[in-house]
Structure formats: structure tokens, C-alpha cells
Design a protein around this nucleic acid. Structure first.
Lengths: 336, 336
DNA sequence: CTTTATAATGAAAACGATTACACGTTTCTG
DNA sequence: CAGAAACGTGTAATCGTTTTCATTATAAAG
């Protein structure tokens, strides 16, 4: 069904049908005829053709590293809600198990001419930087602060620093760390550094702190904890880069007869739903992922607006890339 | 950047550029010139225009009820992986907090002329049935068996029946149920019926079984369990429609001094990651969500293939809508 | 009953690609 | 060397819309 056929059926010109759909001037008589023809045929205007003609797309691309993750989900939730309100749809790209997929998606999305892109960044290689900088579409990065681009990110460093300081203040002396790959600048590097900084400030040996790298699954937290416990039987505090890792670690601690928090304190990052049902409940630091998504979407929409109204802007005062750093909140529970 | 500008820059016709990109016959000389022009301009063909002309879309729509859910995520994971392999992108629609969004999305996606749609169904009203049946695009339903349409779904009924029978066999006499809204034919109605059927077969009073309706969060499972415990202090078994609910319920049981499984047995559905880290670990029945997604995607691609090659098909022998019913596996752990 | 303003209308040109078609070269064949 | 076959190439039509512009019909004003 095309607009032409409908027009023929209604005995009017395609233009008339278009006007009916978009609210142009049209006589009552024709309005009715068109309405009937549409009703009968079940005609639906082809959005693609419309976009093509008007240049206005109602889709934005969202690229995330994983999909099976509460924090990523929250982010997407925030993005989608904000976008939906403005009538945009979300085109999803997720790059699990392959880093170059990230660039592939960036490429396809640019070719698809979506209105803009939100990319949740983890690693940030040279080649990727170039790709991002040369992106022809409005682009907002989340999860990392990438100088020169609009970003919405968390204060991972201070979040974990403060969390660790709390643990130290409560009496932990021999703290170990379970993190994720340091390639991941935020969840990997920044959190690790935050923990080390706290140790330094307390006069502990930050460089000598025992640690393990896990992935984002409980099982690997369990594994890491088991190993650390073997090598450091007298440890009395564990900082984990994510709550899921912490839950895995907690399992290992309990199995080995450690009482939490009496013998060993433990804390994670993320405010996962499971923190409340575990025994003991898990102390954590909440990063505002949903908010992060919402802000990113808002920022993107702003950029999209600017791009569309390029006419007036002209001389770039819009060069001032807005970036947003979000806060955090430590949530004290039983494990610390 | 359009193909025309590139052509002008390279001193060739637009057709030549197109042929360069799509592998038509072209002289060495021109190939080089075009290559250079593309390199210089960073030209990227507009996929939308291409689709418009060729009628071949590389996007499929996926409509899900929620996004913050491990089972939904697994499904999406299965879908996306299968699709990505064939070069398709995923357009996401999620209908959290509003049922009519489901139809809205169905509408928009049809208008967007995506290649096909996977819809994860929960409720199934009359109006929705009509909308689904009159969908003009290839459509696969997951999560429910909807007669007359291609579906991929789980055997929720027997999964929970068998799970309940196991609990009975292990000695539970006074079983209670925590479910979700029965509007949800699969997770709501079918699982509840499965539980009741097991009771009936064991000669228990299925109609008198105490129960509560929760939503998909641990907190509401906790709440439901608390109430049930109040009214039925002597209960000795709990079947939960989802693992998350079960974890909330377990929390409530433990707080009230019930030993699991000695005093009260409990089990859920879904094989959530947290099942392994809780104490005790949770007995559950695994539904193959990832597989479900993958099969749905495969089915959809088949349908898309048929639609494209409509030429030969003609007289409908393809009327035989394939549907797939997936199995389940009971995973016995400590809670039962 | 003209004249002028206003509203409704359709034809045709875009949007950015692909591709059928015809034309001009070159190469092969007899 | 003529004619056929093969190849390379550009022009123009097309996909399904919106929108400009010129036109016509209708209403208001003189």
C-alpha cells in the first residue's frame, strides 16, 4: 500500500492524502474520502520514505558492552524512557564478546543515519578515539570522561575511595581487592585507583595490596576470593569492583567459615537488587545509572536539536561540549 | 555527502560509484578514482536510501515487556546473536509500565518497515490478538503459544507441575504459592495451574492453596511471604513463579527463623544467577530463554526469507505455521 | 457583476541511493 | 575487414513520501 494507491482509491491526489495525514488544508469532503480509503486499505505511511524526504529521523542508536547486567539495564532504561517521551525509538547494539563490534556498530549506525548515538564506553584505544572523534552524528559517551566529547559519567574513583575509607575507619587493616580488567577505565582502572588512594591516605601499603581480576560474573568473584584467601588467610577486608563479584566472593568467604563482617568486611559497587536479599546484606556504593542514561539522552537530544537548527547557530559557540559528572551514595548495610 | 557529490569529485557518474560499492563492472582507472574520492570525503552510503530503493531492510524489531530482568535479557541475547550473524540490527521496544505501548510499538515498527518483529508476549487481550493477526510484517511470538501464529514458548505448566511434585515427594504437605498476575498467561496463569495440578494429583486441596500475587521484584516476594507466613504459620513449602520472588521470600523466611529446607522448602523458576550465591542455594527450573530467543530469530529469518521470495511460493503451502515448544530442566539445589 | 483575497488542489521536484537500458568502445571470430 | 560479442559507461526511472508552486474554485468586498 502506497500513498498513491490510496489516493487513487479515494479519487484524490497523493498530496491530498499527505495533507490529510499531516494536517494540511483540506476540504471536509476529501478528508472523509481519504479517511475511508485509509480505513479500507489499512494503509500505513512508510516512515522510511518520510524520513528520507524530511530528513527527520526518530531513531537513536545505543551501544552497550553487555546486556545481561543490571547496571547496563538501568542505563538503557534511563535512556529509553527519556527518548520514548520525545517519540524516539532505540536501535540497540551490544558488543559482548568482541571489541571491534563496537566500531562496527558505530559504522552501521552512522550509515543508517540515526539521529544520534549514545555509546557506553569501557575501553578506549587510540583507534577508537579517532573513530569517535570523526563520528558524523551527534554522539554522547557514558561511563567515561573522554575529553573533548560530551560525556555523562560517574565519579568511580572517589566512590571507591570513600567506600574503602569507610572500611578502614571501621577497622580493616589487611584489605584485598577484586577488580575487572584495567582496560576498562571506569570500572577497572578508576575503581582500583580509588581503593589504592584510600590505602595510601591511611598510610597502608597500596602497592602491596593483594588483588585479583575477575569478570562480571559471580562465579569469577568466588574463584578470585578463594585464591586470595588461600594466599592471605588473615585478610580482613574485601573491596569488589562490582556487587556481583562481591556476592560471589561472599559465598567463598562463608564457605570457608569467615564471619561477615566480624572476621572479614566486604563491599561492592552498584546497588544490585541482590544486595538486599543476601545474608548479610551487602554494603555498596550506588552509582546513578538510570539518571546517567536519562542525562545522556537529554544531552543527545539537545545536540540533535542543534544539528537540525544549524541555520542560526553558525559561528560555533556550541563548541563548549557539556559533560556531566554524576555523584554517588554509599549505602551502609550489614557486610561492613 | 551524497553519491552524487562523490561522483562529481571523482569525475564519474553516480552509477559508477554505486557499482564500485556494490561490485558492478568497472574499469581499474575509475575504481581508483572513486576509491580516492570516498577516502577523501569519508563518504558513507545512506542505508536508508538504499533500503528504500532495494526494499531490503536489515533491521528487526524486538518488543519485550521489561528490560531489567535476567530472563528477558537472555532472550534478547539469543535473538541478537542470531540476528547479528545474519547482519541484522535490533530495534528495541520495551513496554514497561504501560500495556498499550506494546501496540504502539507494533504500529511504529510496521510503519518503519523493519524486516520482521519478535514480540515477547505476556498478556493477550482480544484487541491485541486482532492487532497481531493483522500484522503486515513477519512476526514471531515468544513466551506464549498463540494458536495460528508462529511461536516459540516454554512448557511453563509442566515445568512447575514437576517442580511441585518434587517438593511433594520430598515431604511438603502444606504448600503455598507466590505468583504474578494471571493476565500473564505463561508466568502467571500456566505456572499457577501447574502447581495446582501437582497438588490435585497428590490428592491435596488445590483450590484451598494459600497464595499471593507479587510483581517481578524481590521486595514484593518478601512482602507476600510475610503475609502468607502470618496466615499460615505451619506452611512447609513455597513455590514461586520466579526466582527473584523466591529470593525475597527466602529472606522473609530466614528472618522469621524458619530453617530452609528443614522447616520450609522453597523453589522458583528461571535459573537466576543469584540462585547459586544465596544461602541456601535455590532449587529452580531452568527455562531455556537464550535458546528461545535464538529459535525465534531463526524462525523469523525463515519467514522473512519467504516473504522476500514471494515470487515462487505463490499458492500457500507455507500456511503451516511452525511453532516450537521448548523443554525445561529441574535444577535441584539446597532449598528443596 | 466584476474584482480581489483566500482557500483548496494537483503536478512535479526533491530526498539518496540502485538498476534497466541504450550507447559507445574494444576485442574476438570467421 | 566486417560483424558479433563483450565490456564499460552514463542517463533516467524508480522507491514512497513531502512540499513548493502555479492553478483553480470559492468567498468576500466593492
Amino acid at each position: 500500500m502506497t500513498i498513491k494507491e490510496v489516493a487513487r482509491l479515494a479519487g484524490v491526489s497523493p498530496a491530498a492524502v499527505s495533507r490529510y495525514l499531516n494536517g494540511g488544508p483540506l476540504s471536509k469532503d476529501k478528508k472523509e474520502r481519504v479517511a475511508r480509503a485509509i480505513e479500507e486499505t489499512g494503509y500505513r505511511p512508510n516512515l522510511m520514505a518520510k524520513t528520507m524526504r524530511t530528513g527527520k529521523v526518530r531513531q537513536v542508536g545505543v551501544i552497550v558492552p553487555r546486556i545481561m547486567s543490571e547496571s547496563v539495564n538501568s542505563l538503557m532504561d534511563g535512556i529509553a524512557e527519556e527518548l520514548l517521551e520525545k517519540g524516539y525509538m532505540t536501535v540497540l547494539g551490544y558488543t559482548d564478546r568482541s571489541k571491534d563490534r563496537e566500531l562496527q556498530y558505530l559504522d552501521i549506525m552512522q550509515s543508517s543515519r540515526v539521529a544520534g548515538i549514545v555509546l557506553m564506553a569501557t575501553t578506549l584505544s587510540e583507534i577508537k578515539k579517532v573513530s569517535l572523534e570523526s563520528c558524523t552524528l551527534p554522539l554522547v559517551i557514558t561511563g567515561q570522561n573522554f575529553e573533548g566529547m560530551p560525556c555523562v559519567y560517574h565519579d568511580d574513583f572517589n566512590a571507591v575511595r570513600e567506600l574503602t575509607e569507610l572500611m578502614i575507619q571501621k577497622g580493616a587493616k589487611r584489605i584485598v581487592y577484586i577488580g575487572v580488567l584495567e582496560e576498562d577505565k571506569a570500572a577497572g582502572l578508576a575503581r582500583h585507583e580509588g581503593c589504592r588512594e584510600a590505602l595510601r591516605r591511611a598510610g597502608f601499603d597500596a602497592d602491596g595490596m593483594p588483588m585479583r581480576i575477575a569478570d562480571f560474573e559471580a562465579q569469577s568473584g568466588y574463584q578470585a576470593m578463594t585464591e586470595l584467601l588461600e594466599e592471605n588467610p588473615d585478610l580482613d577486608g574485601v573491596i569488589c569492583a562490582t556487587d556481583i563479584i562481591a556476592h560471589g566472593a561472599m559465598k567463598a568467604l562463608k564457605e570457608r567459615g569467615k564471619r561477615i563482617p566480624e572476621d572479614v568486611m566486604i563491599a561492592g559497587v552498584g546497588d544490585n537488587w541482590a544486595d538486599l536479599i543476601s545474608t548479610p546484606t551487602l554494603t555498596t556504593v550506588k552509582l546513578h545509572q538510570r539518571r546517567c542514561g536519562a542525562e545522556a539522552a537529554r544531552l543527545l537530544l539537545e545536540l540533535i536539536g542543534e544539528t537540525e537548527g544549524e541555520a542560526e547557530a553558525e559561528a560555533g559557540e556550541s563548541a563548549g561540549h557539556k559533560s556531566i559528572k554524576l555523584g554517588y551514595r554509599i549505602i551502609e548495610r550489614e557486610s561492613l
